[in-house]
Write a protein that binds this DNA or RNA. Structure first.
Length: 231
DNA sequence: CCCTGATTCGC
DNA sequence: GCGAATCAGG
C-alpha cells in the first residue's frame, strides 16, 4: 500500500482526532501501526500524549543499560541485527527548560464557530463544471467535525447493501464520503460525477471553492477536526 | 501480558 | 520515504 493523498488525509484526520495508531492502521488497512506512526511523524504530526515521553533521565538510564555487557534477553526472532548507535562518548546534556507554561494554541476543542458574516455581499459564480461557487458564509467543511468513534471492523451491514462502498468506487461515481469512516453506514455519494471531477456536481460545489478577493476572505482558520473523545 | 507512541536504521 | 524492530511507560 502506498500513501495516497486520500490515505494521508484520512491518517491526518484520525490522528488529530485522537484515534490511536492501531485504530488508524485498522481503518486504513494494509498498513501496520508502526507504519502509521512513522508516517505521522514524517508528516510532522506527532505531539500527542505518549506514555513514554515524559522522563528526561531515560537517556542516562538507557546509556547505563547499554553499557552493561550482559544482555540476558531471549529472542525468538532470527534476525535481531539492530542494536548499535549508542554513543558512549556523548555527555548527558543538561536541559532545564523553564518554558513549561506554554499554552497550546492549536488544541481548542471548545472554540465556537467563527462569527457569521451575513452582512457581506454574496459572491456567486459558476465553476467550469456548471456547479455553484459559494461564498465563505454558506459553505460547510467537507467533513463536519465529529468526535471520533470507536472504530468497528467494517462489519457488513445490510442497511448499506445498496450504498456505494469503498469497493464500488470508480471514475464515474462521486467519491464524496457520507458519514464517517468506521461507522456502520459509512459509504460514498455514488452519484454520477461532474465530468472531469471526482465528485458529482453538488459535491464539486463543496469541494471547489472560489478564491475570493483578499478583503472578503474569512480571517479565522477553520475548526480543526475532532473534539472530545467519545467512548 | 496487553496496550500506547517514539525512535532507529536498513532498505 | 518507508516501516519492522525495538524501546519504554501505562
Amino acid at each position: 500500500m502506498s500513501w495516497t493523498e486520500e490515505r494521508i488525509a484520512t491518517l491526518t484526520k484520525l490522528w488529530e482526532g485522537g484515534s490511536t495508531a492501531s485504530e488508524i492502521a485498522t481503518e486504513l488497512g494494509g498498513v501496520s501501526r508502526n507504519a502509521v506512526i512513522g508516517k505521522a511523524h514524517r508528516l510532522g504530526l506527532k505531539a500527542r500524549p505518549s506514555p513514554v515521553k515524559a522522563n528526561e533521565k531515560k537517556a542516562a538510564k538507557k546509556k547505563e543499560a547499554a553499557a552493561k555487557p550482559a544482555a540476558p534477553k531471549t529472542k525468538p526472532k532470527p534476525a535481531p541485527a539492530r542494536k548499535a548507535a549508542e554513543a558512549p562518548a556523548a555527555k548527558p546534556v543538561e536541559r532545564q527548560e523553564p518554558q513549561a507554561a506554554a499554552p497550546a494554541s492549536n488544541s481548542n476543542p471548545q472554540q465556537p464557530m467563527p462569527d457569521k458574516r451575513s452582512d457581506l455581499p454574496k459572491i456567486v459564480s459558476y465553476g467550469p463544471g456548471g456547479f455553484l461557487r459559494q461564498g465563505p458564509g454558506d459553505q460547510q467543511p467537507p467533513i463536519p467535525p465529529a468526535p471520533p468513534r470507536r472504530l468497528v471492523p467494517a462489519k457488513p451491514d445490510p442497511s448499506i447493501a445498496d450504498k456505494t462502498s469503498l469497493l464500488d468506487l470508480n471514475d464515474r461515481v462521486c467519491r464524496w464520503p457520507m458519514g464517517h469512516p468506521g461507522e456502520a453506514d459509512f459509504h460514498f455519494c455514488g452519484e454520477k460525477v461532474n465530468p472531469g471531477f471526482p465528485y458529482c456536481v453538488e459535491h464539486c460545489g463543496r469541494a471547489y471553492q472560489a478564491q475570493l478577493p483578499r478583503g472578503a476572505r474569512r480571517p479565522p482558520p477553520p475548526l480543526p477536526f475532532g473534539g472530545p473523545r467519545v467512548r
